[in-house]
Structure formats: structure tokens, C-alpha cells
Computed example of a mutant assay.
Amino acid sequence: MLDPFVAVRSDLREEGRELDLLVAELGEEGWAAKTPAPGWTIAHQIAHLAWTDRAALLSVTDATGFAALTAEALAAPGDFVDDGAAEGAALPPAELLARWRAGRAELGAALEAAAPDARFPWFGPPMKAASMASARLMETWAHGQDVADALGVRRTPTDRLRHVARIGVRARDYAFAVRGLPVPDAEFRVELTAPDGVSVWAYGPPDAAQRVGGPALDFCLLVTQRAHRSDVAVTAVGPDADRWLDIAQAFAGPAGAGREPGARA
């Protein structure tokens, strides 16, 4: 059986490679195409990934450098994400692409060298190396979805979504807390139909009273806030589970605005 840390690093490389194929041959007009994220073009999406890959690299290799970056973020909490994306998006597309590729490679090498149980700082709670790799995959997939939507490309979901789904489930309490809402006391049961249409990814006690279910792809779109709840086939049983589907987020930081209903119609 493949070691889980090795598996997630491999999946992260593949997720980056798949997105790379979508943008590698784009001309300037393609890079300037608007994505579903307001004010963000495809260039902004890739620039943001390049920026966060750099942040992750600092976290893994240079704690002092990451602390300085965190201080910058805290100084402008409402702007630093957009500012980082805008700075990269202003580069010539070839330079931006090269920067993103180099950062992915450097981060991959750093994760290869990291001990699986080592903990690294982040903008939310500290993360182990394996969790860092999972988080980078989640963000690559989510921003890759924005790129695919901008290009009118329908991506085939893969088992790599299990990493995104797991983060979404584990971030349940954070989604409540970041909004100042009471965190549910009881665990939920989450049952997701895998991309093969047969397998089920299950989390939480089988006899839990509050439950969530649906296709893994739809759940991942929901927790990364790439689709409104009304546009996905994810269902809830129980008031707390139902509330969770309105506020779910798989990412650290402030609660996102999400997407408008009908945006994926």
C-alpha cells in the first residue's frame, strides 16, 4: 500500500500538471479572460497559486520569512490576497507561468524532504507536512475550477478529490467558529459518492443523527465555495448539518462570500 504522504505529494504534482495543461498554450487574450471570481482573470488565479505556493515554501523552509509574510498579511487583512494576485497578474504571461512552475517544483522538493509529522505555521492552525500538501492540492483544484469555468472546460473528477473532501469535513468546526457561531457538539456522518459512481467516502460515526450526503464533486465544489448550495446535489439531515451546508469552507481565513445561485447552471 502506498504511503499516504507519498500519495498526496504525487496527487499534488498531478493536480498542478493538469491545470498547467489548461493554461500553457493560452495567448494574452486567454490569460486576460474573466473567471467566476469577481475581478479575477485567469492570470489572477495562477498568480494567486504562485503566491500561496511561495508562502507554503516559506512555511516549510523559512519560519522567520513566513512570520514576516504573516505580519504583512495582518497589516492588510482585507487586501493582501487580492494584492498578491494583482501583482502576479501584471507580469507577462510567460513570466507568470515560469514563476508558478518554479514555485511548484521548489515546494514539491521541500515537501519531499520534510518529515511527515513535522508541523509548519500557516494562516490558520499549524499543519503537518502531509496536511500542507493536501491543502495545496485543494487550492490548486479550486482555482483550477475557476480557470476551467472561464475556458468552458468540463473537467473529469478524479479520486484526488478525496483530499479536498477530507479537508472540507475536518474544517467543519472552523467554518462555524470563523463566523462566530456555536460549534456543534456532536459529530456528523458524511457519506460521499466517489467519482467512480460506486465507492463511498464516509466520515464520522455511522449512527450519527445529523448527516450529509451527495456526490463527492458537488461536496468539494460547495466547501471550496465554487458553487452555491442550491446548485449542488448535497443534502443534510438535522438543523446543524443543514446550517453547515450554508457556511462550509475548506480554506483558512475569513468567511468567503461564496457564489451566487445559478452560477453553475
Rank of each mutant, 00 (worst) to 15 (best):
G258L: 01
G144W: 00
R154Q: 15
P157K: 08
A86R: 14
P121R: 08
A86S: 09
A94Q: 12
R229Y: 01
A129F: 11
G27Q: 10
E14K: 13
A33G: 04
S199Y: 06
L111K: 04
L151E: 10
R259C: 11
L217M: 12
R119P: 03
G16D: 11
V198Y: 08
R170F: 01
L19M: 14
F219S: 00
A113R: 13
L21I: 04
D82F: 04
Q145S: 13
E15L: 05
E139K: 09
G238P: 14
P36T: 09
D173E: 03
Q225I: 00
A130Y: 07
A257L: 15
E25S: 15
V237M: 11
E260Y: 03
T158H: 10
M132P: 04
Y174Q: 00
W31A: 03
A194H: 09
L96I: 05
F251Y: 07
P254M: 00
G124R: 05
S131G: 14
K34G: 09
A37P: 06
I167S: 07
D146V: 02
L69D: 06
E95L: 15
E191C: 12
L57H: 12
Q210M: 13
F251M: 14
R54S: 13
E18W: 10
G39T: 08
A248R: 02
L74Q: 15
